[in-house]
């Protein structure tokens, strides 16, 4: 069974609100760098940067991707994972880096991202933006900007579809066998 949580318009509204909150928290768009966590986080980061640029006029927000595969703590307990590209377009030292991902769950991906970030540079501030926070954290990590909080059971699956990859924007939850 699958229930839709966010339609295309809801996704756009959520990202627009996140963009405004980023501007408010950062007091403008200066010094901002958006780094998406592949694959869907990168597309979300690009969209948020696009919205920021529309709101704030002529500033260009640097957007990159930060692959965390090599930093994961479950490399030896899951099947081999394909990695993805890391591309950081600017020097992040002293900047405000906003990490962007689609779903925040255990927090382990973000833990790996913080380690990966340390090897890239030393930002002044690191923030976290996610489209969906589904709870069940296993580490002391929280998001600064959340598109939608989705209370979920562990057995459920939260699926994020984005038009860049999947053809349409939908966030849905599927109940697992034991849920």
């Amino acid at each position: 069974m699958s229930a839709t949580l966010l339609q295309s318009d809801d996704v756009t509204r959520a990202l627009t609100r996140i963009a405004h909150e980023i501007l408010e928290g950062n007091k403008g768009s200066s010094n901002l760098v958006l780094l998406g966590i592949p694959t869907r986080g990168v597309h979300l980061a690009r969209r948020i940067a696009g919205i920021l640029e529309r709101i704030d006029g002529d500033t260009q927000i640097p957007v990159g991707s930060l692959d965390v595969t090599m930093y994961r703590d479950d490399l030896m307990s899951n099947p081999m994972r394909e990695s993805a590209l890391t591309q950081v377009p600017v020097d992040i030292d002293g900047k405000t880096v906003v990490l962007v991902d689609d779903v925040l769950y255990s927090g382990r991906t973000v833990r790996a991202a913080l380690d990966a970030l340390t090897d890239v540079g030393r930002p002044a501030i690191v923030r976290l933006a996610v489209l969906v926070d589904r709870g069940h954290r296993e580490l002391p990590i929280r998001a600064d900007y959340v598109g939608k909080n989705v209370p979920s059971a562990r057995g459920e699956r939260v699926n994020v579809r984005l038009s860049e990859i999947d053809g349409d924007d939908v966030v849905s939850v599927t109940s697992g066998g034991d849920a």
Partner: peptide, 20 residues
């Protein structure tokens, strides 16, 4: 070959080591 592409993307930065 694709994973090697990703490895190459770490080749130019100051910290080249990965913890994998």
């Amino acid at each position: 070959l694709d994973i090697a592409e990703d490895m190459a993307s770490f080749g130019h930065r100051d910290v080249k080591k990965l913890p994998a």
